[in-house]
């Protein structure tokens, strides 16, 4: 039975079939890898670069980063504080979801982009207090429209920076390379 299948496969039509199958697998894999690297679809195509260009600080919209574990995603009230004074807000198609959210009082469901797994307990405050700038992990937001990750947040990447920042300080190194600092 296998011999018959093999005989069929080595004839020209069979070879084309094999070629198509290989191509299908490869393109599916390529699509899959590409898909995981895409930033998720957001309810509003929020242009980070426009806001950063106006001089809005990261901490204005994400104040939690300096105070606690979570940086936070602003509610529409914060958007509206500026946007209600901008005439374009009333007419723009791109801003229609914001206008609608404010009028109906339903929250805008932003999709978090920079995430760590559940078993990692990350604290923004400690990192900001240690002198890390937002762009060290999140990339240069003056260049992107919708937020995207410049790198994969994995443990080797975290630990690399932890070890580097500890330097020769043994006590700091013990703390920064301790499993219980991030995993509990």
């Amino acid at each position: 039975m296998f011999k018959r299948l093999f005989d069929w496969l080595i004839q020209p039509l069979g070879l084309i079939a094999v070629g198509i199958a290989v191509l299908a697998v490869f393109s599916l894999a390529a699509y899959g890898i590409n898909y995981t690297q895409q930033p998720p679809e957001q309810p509003i195509q929020f242009p980070h670069k426009t806001h950063a260009a106006f001089g809005v600080q990261c901490l204005y919209c994400h104040p939690g980063a300096a105070k606690g574990p979570s940086a936070g995603i602003p509610a529409q009230a914060k958007c509206w504080a500026c946007h209600q004074q901008i005439a374009k807000t009333q007419t723009s198609v791109l801003l229609a979801p914001l206008k609608q959210a404010v009028e109906s009082g339903t929250p805008i469901e932003w999709v978090p982009v920079a995430m760590v797994p559940d078993f990692v307990q990350f604290n923004h405050r400690a990192h900001v207090a240690a002198g890390q700038n937002c762009e060290n992990c999140h990339g240069d937001m003056t260049k992107v429209t919708v937020a995207q990750n410049p790198q994969v947040f994995n443990m080797g990447w975290c630990l690399n920076c932890h070890v580097k920042s500890a330097g020769d300080d043994q006590e700091k190194l013990v703390k920064l390379s301790d499993c219980g600092t991030c995993h509990y």
Binding site: P117, F119, V174, K175, D178, C179, G180, H183, Y184
Partner: peptide, 15 residues
């Protein structure tokens, strides 16, 4: 399950 040098606790690293 490792000993935490920083906190002197027994850790369980779930991942």
């Amino acid at each position: 399950t490792v000993h935490s040098e920083a906190e002197q606790l027994n850790l369980q690293v779930y991942n």
